[in-house]
Amino acid sequence: MSTTRGLDKSTITKAYARWAPVYDFVFGAVFERGRKASIAAAERIGGRILEVGVGTGISLPDYSRQNRLVGIDISEPMLRKAHARVRELKLDNVEVLSVMDVAHLGFPDDSFDVVVAQYVITAVPDPDAALDEFARVLKPGGEIILVNHISAESGMRRTVELQFAPIARRLGWRPEFEWARLQEWIDRNPRMRVIDRTPMPPLGHFSMMRFGKSA
């Protein structure tokens, strides 16, 4: 099933409008290791990079100026902060920042060398449609790089995640998202393959996942 009950576009948009003023303060340090790891992985390929869920643009200054960056987000209040950051830091390698639905990307096929989505795939209504779009706009030989929470398959952490799920959806994401769901997507897409899956702090609750598109 591609969608998750209780997490729709309206819920997400409202949630991240509320998060916009405090997002960097609340999540900046918590997500820093994952952000920097995904940027380093993207820069091993370089070129034209799409950052999905660019948010306040907190990652943009960390990319090499040699790379060309395009950022999209569903939240206009978050993107206003990203635009201000680009102006303040004179990030002339940022081509454009746009409000856009990840399930309907407004780019031609094979547009990007890398697609980066940090802490995004559990915060969209239809993760499978989003992944299909990432693969569509990715050039052959390129990589999709995800950093995200992957839920436990059993045990106490699994129980806590399921109990917390209704609250998390109101805050704008789903805590129950198993690796099997990504593996099923890979199995349906013969041009895509898993390159790497690396646990990320804190406590390995997050993972960096790299998927390659065959040439």
Rank of each mutant, 00 (worst) to 15 (best):
E76N: 07
P190S: 15
A37V: 03
P108T: 10
L69A: 03
T4I: 13
G141E: 07
P77E: 06
E176L: 11
S75Y: 03
V96D: 13
L69Q: 05
I167P: 03
D73Y: 12
A82S: 06
I74K: 01
R170H: 09
D62A: 07
V22T: 10
E88P: 02
A20W: 10
D8R: 12
R188S: 14
R193M: 06
G212Q: 05
R65S: 13
V54M: 02
G55E: 08
Y63I: 07
G34S: 15
V114T: 01
A15I: 03
M200V: 14
D128E: 15
G142K: 05
V70D: 00
R33V: 08
P199M: 14
N67M: 05
M209N: 04
E76C: 06
E43S: 04
A168R: 12
L91D: 03
T56E: 03
I72P: 00
L105I: 01
G28E: 11
H149M: 12
V52F: 02
M156E: 10
L60W: 05
G53T: 01
R197D: 05
R80I: 00
V194I: 14
V137P: 06
R5N: 09
P127I: 11
T11Q: 14
L171Q: 14
E43K: 04
M1Q: 09
A15K: 06
P190M: 10
R68C: 00
L171V: 04
A29P: 05
L79H: 09
T198I: 15
